[in-house]
Design a protein around this nucleic acid. Structure first.
Length: 392
RNA sequence: GUGGGCGUAGCUCAGUUGGUUAGAGCGCCAGGUUGUGGUCCUGGAGGUCGCGGGUUCGAACCCCGUCGCUCACCCCA
C-alpha cells in the first residue's frame, strides 16, 4: 500500500549513536531519559537500540541527501526499556513512513490518509483519528507562556502530581487523564487558538483536505505527543476497542526542525509510526479474524525402506510445486502414519521394501478410512498422479 | 522509575497445618494391530519444584535475596 502512495522502503540500523535519539526525541522526554537501551561498544562509543523509527530515517536522509521529496516506509523492531504489560513490550514492531522535504499540507493529508487506508484494509473499524497542531517554535512557546499564566491561578485544582510539576514540561499536562486536570485544561487557553497565521492556515488546509477525501478527524487541542520534535500537525489514531491506557495504535506528526537538530540543513518532515503488536490486539478486540493462509502440506511421504527414497520423492514433488513433508529417523510405519495424520496432508505416499522392489508408490487418501482405497503407481509417475489427484 | 500477582513435566495446572518415593489432564514414546493414521485399551519416558542463601530433624510449601514472566501506574506504539 505504501508503494501505491509512492514510498520506497528503507532499512536503518538497529542501533544508532545515542545522540541521534537524544537530540531528536528530546533529552527531557520520557523515552529518551529513561526508556532507551543504551550501551557502550568496545571503543567506548555510546549507542542506543532504536526506540522509535523517525530519528534514524532522518539521520540517514541527512547522511545521503537524496532528492526531494524523500518518501520512505519501514517495518522495524523498536525497543523501550520499560516495564512490559498488555499492549506494551520492550521490543515491538513499528510500521511507519516518513516524508522529508516539503511542508505542503498535501503531504500531511496524504500521510494521514495512508495510515487510515491501511487500517481500513486490515479490517479495523472502531477507531478515531485525533488531530491537532502544535504550531512552530514560536507559536508553541507563546502558548506555553499563556498556559502557564493561566495554570498558575489554578494550581490547587490540578491533580496531586501535577500540582508539584505544573510549571515544568507544561505541555505534557494536557495529556493528563485525571478528571481534575482535564477540567482545568479544558477551561483554559487552547493551543489552536494561539497559532500564528501561517500555522493556523496550514492546519486548516490539512483538516479541510482530510474531510474532502472522507477522513473524519476529531480536533483535539489537548493532543500533545511525547517526542519533542513535533511541530505543526500532530495526529493519533486511537482504538475504541482497547483500554485507554494503551489505545494509541498509530501516531505521528510534522517535525520541521528535526533535520536541523540532527545536523542537517533545515528540511521539513512528517511521518507516522504504528505499533504492529498493538494493532493486532485492536483487531482481536474487534473480533476481526485474519484470513488464515493454509500452510498444511499436501502430501506426506512415508518411507520404511532401508535406503531412504523419501528424499528423492520429496524433491521431485517439491520441484513440481507440491507441498511435501516426510518423517525422519526411520521410524515404524505406524509412527510415520501418525505423523502423517497430524500433518494435515491430504495424501500419504507409502514406500516400503515391497513397493520399492517393484518401483512403485502406494497412495493413500488420508480422508478415507478404508485401506482398500489405496492405489499403487509407478515411482516415475508419482508427480503427475499427485497433481491430478490434487485437482491441478 | 512505582505498586500488585505468578514461577512445579513439552503445555495447562493441582499439591492439605512443613512430613517418606512431587501428581493430573493433554502431548510425546511403545505395545495391542510382526506394512497403515484418525477412535479405544494397556504400559512407559519425562521434573536441579526459576536460581542462591536461611530457618528446621525434615522445605515445592516458611523467611531473605535475586532473576524471569505478568497486570497496573507513568509514558508511549
Amino acid at each position: 500500500m505504501a508503494y501505491r502512495y509512492g514510498f520506497s522502503m528503507i532499512v536503518t540500523p538497529t542501533f544508532e549513536d545515542v545522540g541521534v535519539f537524544n537530540r531528536g526525541i528530546g533529552e527531557n522526554s520520557e523515552v529518551a531519559s529513561k526508556e532507551m537501551y543504551v550501551f557502550e561498544d568496545r571503543g567506548g562509543r555510546t549507542f542506543a537500540l532504536r526506540p522509535e523509527g523517525t530519528a534514524p530515517v532522518v539521520r540517514a536522509f541527512i547522511q545521503h541527501s537524496p532528492t526531494l521529496p524523500f518518501k520512505a516506509w519501514y517495518f522495524t523492531p523498536a525497543f523501550r526499556y520499560e516495564r512490559p504489560q498488555k499492549g506494551r513490550f520492550r521490543e515491538h514492531h513499528q510500521l511507519g513512513v516518513e516524508v522529508l522535504g516539503s511542508e505542503d499540507a498535501a503531504i500531511d493529508i496524504e500521510t494521514i490518509s495512508l495510515l487510515n487506508d491501511f487500517f481500513q484494509a486490515v479490517g479495523l473499524r472502531k477507531y478515531r483519528v485525533l488531530i491537532n497542531s502544535m504550531g512552530h517554535d514560536e507559536c508553541r512557546q507563546n502558548y506555553v507562556e499563556v498556559l502557564k499564566a493561566y495554570l498558575s491561578t489554578h494550581v490547587s485544582e490540578l491533580c496531586e502530581e501535577h500540582q508539584k510539576v505544573w510549571d515544568q514540561n507544561t505541555l505534557r499536562l494536557l495529556d493528563c487523564k485525571k478528571p481534575s486536570c482535564v477540567e482545568v485544561t479544558n477551561k483554559g487557553p487552547q493551543l489552536p487558538a494561539h497559532l500564528c497565521a501561517p500555522c493556523s492556515e496550514h492546519f486548516s488546509s490539512v483538516v479541510l483536505g482530510l474531510s474532502t477525501i472522507g477522513v473524519k478527524c476529531e480536533l483535539t487541542p489537548r493532543l500533545v505527543r511525547g517526542f519533542d520534535y513535533y511541530t505543526r500537525t500532530t495526529f493519533e489514531f486511537v482504538s475504541d476497542a482497547l483500554d485507554s491506557a494503551q489505545n494509541a495504535i498509530g501516531g505521528g506528526g510534522r517535525y520541521d526542525k528535526l533535520a536541523e537538530q540532527l545536523g542537517g540543513s533545515p528540511t521539513a518532515g512528517i511521518g507516522f509510526g504504528s505499533g504492529v503488536e498493538r494493532l493486532l490486539l485492536a483487531l482481536e478486540a474487534e473480533g476481526v479474524t485474519e484470513p488464515s493462509i493454509s500452510r498444511t502440506p499436501q502430501v506426506f511421504v512415508v518411507d520404511t525402506t532401508e535406503v531412504d527414497v523419501a528424499t528423492t520423492i520429496c524433491h521431485s514433488l517439491r520441484s513440481a510445486g507440491i507441498a511435501a513433508v516426510r518423517a525422519y529417523d526411520h521410524r515404524s510405519m505406524k509412527a510415520q502414519m501418525k505423523v502423517a495424520d497430524k500433518s494435515g496432508a491430504r495424501f500419504a505416499l507409502l514406500v516400503g521394501p515391497q513397493e520399492n522392489a517393484v518401483g512403485q508408490i502406494t497412495i493413500r487418501d488420508l480422508r478415507g478410512d478404508e485401506r482398500t482405497e489405496q492405489v499403487s503407481v509407478a515411482q516415475q509417475d508419482i508427480v503427475t498422479e499427485v497433481l491430478s489427484r490434487l485437482g491441478k
